[in-house]
């Protein structure tokens, strides 16, 4: 008798991912879908996709979903959750969306303690528009709009959103993770689950920042990209549990 040893999560749709080789979006999508399955909340969860490489995220999940204007995912999510507090609403946002054009919406949603979950993909570059500087681009990092490397005199410094949000009383769960090793993938999944539980239990705002590779726009192969992520990005943005009001119960 044949026995299924592997099944895709029910919360993922049948649509094939359109992400580049070595990109971490696919891994994170899958982790979110597994968490939603395990929590048994698929039929009451809505995804708010951003503008950016993950603009199609709403298609990749077997969930009700929409796409917010660039940077406004947390405002859209706030409106939805206030209209229907019984829903589980999460946003999936990149660094440009969440930490540049949408900074105000991010900070105020967190500060209000909106019962929402945000998965924040930080890959230090603008993906969809073709590799321009992100607010999280590292000092010296070359992008198409920092061809001589990011210069703090001119471009300022990489922004640390998780550190900023960690000062806010409305935040119930906040962690920065990586998905570069099987062990770290497991930890990331645990963090994502807790960020959803923070919402479900009505504790407040939950956010998981995932350091993510973008080999295409970094101009590297996937292996080099993983190394660069560990050696450079993780130094600037150290993985850390900032806030955990969920506990292990």
């Amino acid at each position: 008798m044949e026995k299924a040893i592997f099944n895709p999560p029910k919360s993922l749709s049948k649509r094939e991912f359109t992400y580049c080789p070595g990109c971490h979006h696919g891994i994170v999508h899958r982790l979110i879908a597994e968490v939603i399955d395990e929590l048994g909340i698929r039929e009451k969860t809505v995804i708010i996709a951003p503008v950016g490489c993950s603009v199609f995220a709403y298609e990749f999940f077997e969930l009700d979903g929409t796409v917010a204007p660039h940077g406004r995912a947390l405002a859209v999510a706030t409106g939805m959750k206030r209209a229907r507090p019984d829903l589980v609403v999460f946003t999936y946002q990149g660094d440009g969306d969440l930490a540049a054009i949408g900074t105000a919406e991010t900070i105020h949603a967190a500060n209000r303690g909106e019962k929402l979950t945000t998965i924040f993909i930080n890959n230090a570059v603008y993906g969809m528009t073709g590799g321009q500087m992100a607010p999280t681009t590292l000092i010296g990092q070359k992008t198409t709009t920092t061809p001589y490397g990011r210069n703090h005199e001119k471009d300022g410094y990489p922004i640390h959103i998780s550190e900023i949000l960690s000062t806010m009383n409305g935040v119930a769960y906040l962690e920065r993770v990586t998905v570069d090793t099987p062990q770290n993938v497991r930890s990331a999944k645990k963090a994502i689950k807790k960020a959803f539980l923070a919402q479900i239990k009505g504790l407040g705002f939950g956010l998981v920042e995932v350091l993510s590779a973008c080999p295409t726009n970094w101009g590297m192969n996937p292996v080099e990209a993983m190394t660069w992520l560990r050696e450079h990005m993780a130094k600037e943005f150290p993985p850390k549990l900032f806030v955990d009001k969920v506990g292990d119960g």
Binding site: A68, V76, T78, G79, R84, H108
Partner: peptide, 13 residues
Amino acid sequence: VATVNMVYGAACT
């Protein structure tokens, strides 16, 4: 800017 997007989100329901 946030307002109109909250209206969007609420109207989705």
